[in-house]
Every structure is written in C-alpha cells, then in structure tokens.
Nucleic acid binder design. Structure first.
Lengths: 128, 128, 128, 128
DNA sequence: GTGGTCTAGACCACC
DNA sequence: GTGGTCTAGACCACA
C-alpha cells in the first residue's frame, strides 16, 4: 500500500505524510480507520522507525490522525476538512510556478494541455 | 535589483540563481552583460560572499554565466537556450502538482483561474 | 584509499573528484556502493569538511554520485556511462597536447613510447 | 599575429607566454628578433598592459627573452634550447593523461589515431 | 550518525 | 578591483 523512494529529494517522512493524506482524500482511508503501526510500517518499508514516528507526529499535530497510546493511530473525523483547507496555499504556489513558465515563454496552450492531462489522470484513478 | 528572503526555506544561493535566471529570461540581463561582482552583491544583500560565490559557481557550471577571474562574471551567449531547455522538466513538475490538487477535489475551473492570473501578471511585466 | 597532495596546483576538491571517478572506472567503487562520509573523509585526509562537501556536491551535480541526506553518498547507476561520455573531450585535449609536443620537435616515436608505458601501467593495475 | 581568448580558463598572460614560445619553436620568431612592445601588444589585444608585462617578465625569468630597458624585448640565443628542455615534464604529463584514458576503457588504437592527427596537423603547418 | 547551508575571515592568482 | 579556494566553526534537517 505505502511506497517510498529513498533516492527522492523529498525526505522519507514527508513522502509518508503525503501518502497518508492522499489516501484520505481519495477515500482509501476513512475517518476512524486504523493506520499501520509505526513498527510494522518501518519494517515493511525498510525504514528507521524514528522516520515513521516523525511522520505520524506531524500528522497528529495537524489533527489529521489521532494517536492513542497503546492502541494505535486513527484517521480523525476532521481529516478531510483540514486537508481541503490547504487548497489556497497550494493554489498560490501553483500560480507562482505558472508565472515562472510564462516568463520562460511557455504558451498558455501548453499549460492548459498539462492541466488537462492531470485531470484525465485523476479521472482514471476514480474509475478504478 | 536583487532581493533575498532570509526567512524562506529556499537556500539563499538558490534564490540568487533563480533571480539571475529570471532576469535573463525577462531580458533585463542580456548575453555578455556583466553581472554584479561577488563582493558587491554580498555587501548589498548583507550576505556572506561565499554564498554568492556558490550561486555564481553553479550558474557557471550550468553554462548560464561565464566567470572570468580578475574580470567578473558575464551572461553567456547560450544562457537563454539553456534556460528554455528546462521547460519540459518544469511542465512535468507542474502536471504532478495539478494532479495533487485534482485529488484534493479542487475543480478545474479554479486551476484555470489561477493560470489566468499568472499570465496577466506576466503581461503587466511586459508592459513596464 | 584516498590520497591528496596539498602542494599540488590542482585544488583539493578536484583531486578528490578525480579519485572518486577513477575508482569507479577501475571498478573499486561500483554502483550503489556507499562512499566515505563527508566527515570521515575530512578527518582521514586532514582536510576541512567543507572541501569534501564541495567535491561531493559536484559529483552529485554531475550525476556520478547520489547524496541522500541522513544516509550518505552512493555511486549512481549511470556513473560509468556518464564518465565514459567524457572520452571525446579528453581525446581532443590529448590531441592538442600532442600537437604542442610535435611543434616542440618531439619525435612521434617518443610519444608512442609514452603511450605504451601508460597502457602497460594500466595492464598491471588490472592484474591486481 | 598574437591572439587571445578572454573566455578561456587559461589566464591571458599564460596564453601569451605560450604563443611566444610556440612562435619561437616553429621558427616564426628567431634569436635576437624583437618582440612587440608591452604597450603596442596591450592596445592591439585590448588587454591590460600589466598582463603583458607579467607575461614578458616570466619569459625573461625563464631566459627565453631578454628585456633591454629603453630598447625592447628580444628573443634570447638559448631560447630554443631552454624550451626543448621542458620536453620531459610535458611527456610525463602526457603519460598521465593517456593513463586516465586507458582506465576509461579507451582503446590504444583511438589514442594512436589521435596522435596521428596531431602530427598531420603539424606537418601542414610546416608546409605553410 | 548523515548531508546541506551559512558565516567569518584568510589567502591566492589574475587584471 | 575581480573570481577561486580553503579553513574553522556553527546550525539545521534527516535517519
């Protein structure tokens, strides 16, 4: 279920955070679902448990998951709401990036094709 | 002319690289133009000369500028070509980002508005 | 394993780059091998860690090694391919050098003896 | 007659030294010939006079030219002999370079072709 | 422990 | 004045 890329620039703990969040948004993980324990995840991904711990701690701080000592970690009720609130930040980041491409003489048409491809990709995912 | 944000997550030397590249793409810096010396830039930006040096070294390695010991650093002839070759990489990065937003239930309409804003911003810049 | 010559005109960081590259070409270092950490190398060679860091950064930029923060630096899969691509440049540099010697009235015979010695040296190395 | 490449990695003063030496070896400049004055050379090459001065000083130190205050600089009697004595150093440098190429799996045949090209180039020069 | 960034300050070669 | 190299020592994020 979870996958990490050790060679990626993105730190492993962030990759895990990202995947948990995506699984929640897609609906693979739902409120009150139990997520894998730190130790099981660490052994499956061949990663240091501290790294998983760090990811879970951050998710807990954000209010996306809820650690219950002795029982495990669970997706919180408000997880989806919290995640959707990040839209604005991401959109402004996107705008900045498009702006850079615009300066590099990339035509708007190319950008639009790129956006279309991304949405097609998402459609496919929804049909699986 | 150059500005840095010390609080940004992005390292200072990368901010400088980015700005030099943008100035070249916009046409503020043209081939064979001399860019500010390591020391003058360092004192103006209140930054250590080594930090500027690192930025300039990387730009030199990329072939975007040409450092001539004792004379200064100059925008290379092929700078614009090199910079435009990065388009593809940036587009695929953009696609990935849009995909993430799509998963987060952001409507395509919102993305398009965002793209429009970026292009309007670029238009304004061109008119100055 | 690694050696540097502090008295050489060649910067220390370049000497290190050169040696890493040679060890890869000879087969002492193979893809995915971990190379010595910045700090351990610095203390062994009695050199400042920043100097090693600079060498490793350049090797990373070239795609010859792959730095993974928190884990170490590893020889990349494509390292050998990348290194072999430099052949042409080196050959043209060699031609230029031979030309200079030719002008200095060095007989072709002497050059050939020199080439022979170099290849004998390589043969010996292969037998170890 | 003299040409410099400002964009070269090689310092300008070394480029000049190299050319004077080559002209002597080829026979374009002969013992007791007067070489261009510092000032005339500097203006022709659009270079700082100090740079020319430095080149001439080094040539003087090596005994290749002979500066006569108020009269100019002249190729010394022993210039050719001195220059030929550098052969050994250059040959060992060449050997090192061939060795590196040998390690990079370059076949001896390729090296030999390279040597041939260099000597052909010299032959042509001699016929001009 | 690892790599990465940055500062402060020095020295060199070159123009 | 210019760029380039190096040291010493600090701090951070990551595993």
């Amino acid at each position: 279920m979870f996958k990490i890329d050790v060679m990626s620039e993105k730190p492993i703990y962030e990759q895990i955070i990202e995947q948990v969040e995506q699984f929640i948004l897609i609906g693979i993980l739902n409120p009150n679902d139990k997520i894998p324990s730190v130790r099981s995840m660490a052994t499956k991904l061949l990663v240091n448990p501290n790294t998983i711990q760090k990811a879970y701690s951050e998710l807990d701080n954000k209010g996306i998951i809820c650690s219950v000592p002795g029982r495990g970690c669970f997706v919180s009720e408000e997880a989806v709401n919290i995640l959707n609130k990040n839209k604005r930040e991401k959109l402004s980041e996107l705008e900045k990036m498009v702006f850079e491409l615009a300066i590099a003489q990339v035509e708007k048409k190319e950008i639009n094709e790129c956006v279309d491809r991304a949405y097609e990709k998402k459609e496919k995912l929804g049909n699986d």
